[in-house]
Design a protein around this nucleic acid. Sequence first.
DNA 1: TTGTACGCGTTATCAT
DNA 2: ATGATAACGCGTACAA
Lengths: 341, 341
Amino acid sequence: MKTTDRAATIKDVARAVGLSVATVSRAITNPKLLNAETLMRVRAAIDNLGYRPNVTAQNLKLSKTGLVMVVVPSLSPFFLEFFRGAEQAARETGYSVLVGHTDRDPAREARFLSQVNSRRADGIVLVTSADQKALLAEGRCLPPLVLALDVTTGGQFASVRVDHVAAAAQATTYLLGLGHRRIAHIAGARASAMTVHRLEGYRMALSEYGLSVDPALLQQGAFTVESGEHAMEQLLALDSPPTAVFAANDEMAIGAIRAIRRAGLSVPQDVSLIGFDDQRVARIYDPPLTTMRIPTYEIGYRSMLELAGLLGGKPQEADIVLPCQLVVRQSAAAVAAAAPA
Amino acid sequence: MKTTDRAATIKDVARAVGLSVATVSRAITNPKLLNAETLMRVRAAIDNLGYRPNVTAQNLKLSKTGLVMVVVPSLSPFFLEFFRGAEQAARETGYSVLVGHTDRDPAREARFLSQVNSRRADGIVLVTSADQKALLAEGRCLPPLVLALDVTTGGQFASVRVDHVAAAAQATTYLLGLGHRRIAHIAGARASAMTVHRLEGYRMALSEYGLSVDPALLQQGAFTVESGEHAMEQLLALDSPPTAVFAANDEMAIGAIRAIRRAGLSVPQDVSLIGFDDQRVARIYDPPLTTMRIPTYEIGYRSMLELAGLLGGKPQEADIVLPCQLVVRQSAAAVAAAAPA
DNA sequence: TTGTACGCGTTATCAT
DNA sequence: ATGATAACGCGTACAA
């Protein structure tokens, strides 16, 4: 084992065994083409020199990187789950993943796209926060791309998502079914398409019951515990507070619970709450959250699989819509018969 | 804007403006060397053709990738925080990060090391779960490497960590200070060095008070809510259960709380609990967890900065130890004066 | 200020 | 079964 400062290259191996680089290359990529004896000698030399093929050189030659970007709006537990799915699929298909987050900044989003155009990666799984029309307009030529979790325009790109509108409507309807009529909504981050869609579902469900949205019951949040807490404080300060709240994600629901408790009230006796996403914390919180389960992991997994398919040459332009599921736990209950005087 | 199927290369640009590739290259890397007028023409052509330098080719030429691996045992909220720090520092220093997780499997750990040796990335920030002696022994030549969060051998590698033993001792001492004497410990995942160190701290603190570890009060966990729950069930089934529990992380502490509640007892009235890490959930849980804060984000951040320094040529071999901090909230209280008969 | 030409480490084609 | 050699796309001496 010769100890030099620079790493051994294929040439070093070739020289060591007195063969050509072509032979050494074949010993790695296509061993059966070699004479058994020479193969052994080559392998010995490789081992001896500690030779490792230079991935960059391979990439240049083969014009691919074996890398994919996975870009999410923020590094939160919610997207962590998504990422786990994507990473799993990436490993299964032989890719490594480069992770990026945009903080919901379209400029940073564009930067990631541009990186892929520079061949930093072979393709990209994108959970975009903004409108995709912008993408479509701006990008002169877009890299292999699959949109995940939520899409605003249909059919233009491969995508894996859920129907946020329908899911939000179902969540709201559940509350309506429990007899609630003054139902508030704590909306998500302003820049997010999910926010719009979940609000839309809320609106739809109400209107099915002949109700319209009371602006006082509509609070802007930001998908954080703190924002949920603050929003709930506003709601509790109302002359006639809601009997139930639909929070656009679990973290805000938890924030709301905290505010409710601080006001000396309890969940679900005084106020019913329904969350969204079914994050891990929803199950372990006290009370366990009734929430709308989004198959986050699966979305990540399928997205990456789609991308791998795309990169594998299949010209698929699928729009996969995965089902959500209401998870009934203990944060929402039937509306109280009457307020005790 | 000529629309071809393959991406434009530097040659295409050169041909388009009737200049040499060298000039085009300079237009990008060192614009001031160019005649102002030619520079404009080159830029126009670049824009027009949508030319983007091929990162792979650049990498090969410059023999670096601009990539770093960040490898953690698992993709959990705890390591997410670590990762955020690392990612932030990576962006500040111009690197992109390739994320890997090992599921505490040494084989997978080795695989990541080997990837870096193949020049998939320039260096690696590693939160190893296993003993580093193995690393040191096996790796013929290790890539630029910094060890994070916990290290078993001192001084061999650059590292950024906390003193888990001291921190665990401090946590246990806090419980002792509250008057508790029957203090249980729910340990972490078996394969983790952190587990050993935190247990050691527990042991040390007890012995300072002239106590020794009661094997019945020592439960094996796995850093998960479920494992904490299960461990606590065992403890509650004891003839004389503990009055306080030191859980090796917050998730297990929460699991323990759940088990305690299910048994009809309450925290901290019947059993005091202290967690470890100060994960986000610790603050929002009910009751808010008393816990030992580990500067996870900072560790990630500093680790990546170390690595960037290493890659920048500075031959530093630092061992940075960051401080922990006890965060007193509401899950631990003074021991009850006497058990009501 | 711009051009020529070599090399980075591979893979793959075409000979032998 | 093995060897010579031309790309892959770029940066950078060195020359002009």
